[in-house]
Design a protein around this nucleic acid. Structure first.
Lengths: 109, 109
DNA sequence: TTGACATATCAAGATTTATTGATATATCTA
DNA sequence: TAGATATATCAATAAATCTTGATATGTCAA
């Protein structure tokens, strides 16, 4: 079904917005194979601590990752469901027909 | 295959960035069923002309739409290939294993 | 031609997002 | 306990993005 409600569109924009930054995409790539602690990400990405923390929060607010505290460490992992949502949204946005079809005669007035 | 090059990550960020705005998602939704002229989009979206033009350019620069001039009208349509790319990118980003797997022992020193 | 129309672009300001350095909060270890 | 460590948050600035109104460009029709 196509995107219909304002709510859906807002949610779609939120997810894509979270995915629209190279640093965050690198974080996601690192989490692909499983949970990682912040310090591991920091070492691999060479990003300043507060910067990394900022991007992790954007990802978390968008539901793309979730975190877990263990002692002084925080572990982050990807949320499958959100990736499912993103795929579904993208499928909705896909062009449905062949090029140039679906036009309703001439445009404008 | 997972995203590897800077180039791929930059391209992924560019596509998601273009998809990260509600107005642009609405434009895409309108183009789903085929080509539309700018004035049709304008009527349906109730967006100021220069604003619409701005968003169409963002979509075009990201390769999500292409345009065609016909007399004084411009027609825009979705580019299938870019949606294919987006789906492929999203599949690459997807978590691969079950939760909590793939960790390499304790973190940090 | 001249004027109306469709669209793009531009300049200015508003809003959002990202980066940096500083500080706060827990938790661990000596 | 005191100091070290891991992380989050905050404040200030920088940079990017969006909106608006004005102007430019090309095309059509009278």
């Amino acid at each position: 079904m196509p995107i219909q409600t304002v709510h859906d569109t807002a949610r779609a924009a939120e997810i894509f917005q979270a995915l629209s930054d190279e640093t965050r995409l690198e974080i996601i790539a690192m989490l692909e194979s499983g949970e990682r602690c912040v310090c591991e990400l920091q070492d691999s990405l060479g990003a300043a601590q507060s910067r990394l923390s900022f991007h992790l929060r954007v990802l978390k607010d968008a539901g793309i990752v979730s975190d877990r505290r263990e002692g002084r460490w925080s572990y982050y992992e990807l949320n499958r469901e959100t990736f499912d949502d993103a795929e579904a949204i993208l499928k909705d946005l896909r062009p449905r027909r062949q090029r140039n079809e679906g036009r309703s005669g001439e445009c404008c007035n």
